[in-house]
Amino acid sequence: MLKQIQQLGANTLGTLQGLGRATLMLFGALWGRPRPLKNWHLYMKQIYVVGVLSLLIILVSGLFIGMVLALQGYTVLAKFGAEQMLGPLVALSLLRELGPVVTALLFAGRAGSALTAEIGLMKATEQLSSMEMMAVDPLRRVIAPRFWAGVISMPLLALIFNAVGILGGHLVGVDWLGVDAGGYWSAMQANVDFQQDVVNGVIKSIVFAFIVTVIALHKGFDAVPTSEGISQATTQTVVTASLAVLGFDFVLTAVMFGG
């Protein structure tokens, strides 16, 4: 019993120390005057790697989730003769919840793990150390571009996810199940509020982008520089980032839509 309490204390302290190191890392990367002009090609490259290369998985998942939503929603709505509400159902589910959350989860798996592994390997092969010895700050040169790439890309990916999902819902609901196309769109227009639904969804995905990217970068930067350490760090990125996203999603949802 005493041992478990000790373990709990040790884990808590470990987590807090990790948070502290992550904050220091972020501070070191972002503090001071940014030089996007000199390093713009680094930023472009990272946005490409982190954002553009994640497009495919986002497009495909968005499409299928939209289609499944329409299919599931239709069977329930049809029972009450409310098929024309399919549009708002699909759109609101995506905008408020599924878009930001699923994008964040996919992003953690696709881009977050890659970031962790890349940085962990750069650390293990002493590339970060040698950069430091060449008087180039790895936090500025390596961490900062990846951080901004993540924070810029993910909200955009979430918006694309939403758009594709709504089209997927249209494909199943209208083209297959025969919901009236005008009804699908007009009910959506009438029931989706820009401020309440679209903006809140974007805020959510910005928060998730921050969480996932920082966790991925920190786990890589803090990885034990061995093959085992990097594999553990990569796993931890996906697990921790996913759980953190779900946890924060609940909090944000409660604040935004709870009252």
Binding site: T125, E126, Q127, S129, S130, E132, M133, M134, A135, D137
Partner: peptide, 16 residues
């Protein structure tokens, strides 16, 4: 960082 510009280090792995 200024001092480091005057020194350099060859890592065992090369660290290219």
């Amino acid at each position: 960082y200024q001092a480091r510009k005057k020194m350099s280090m060859l890592f065992q792995s090369g660290a290219l």
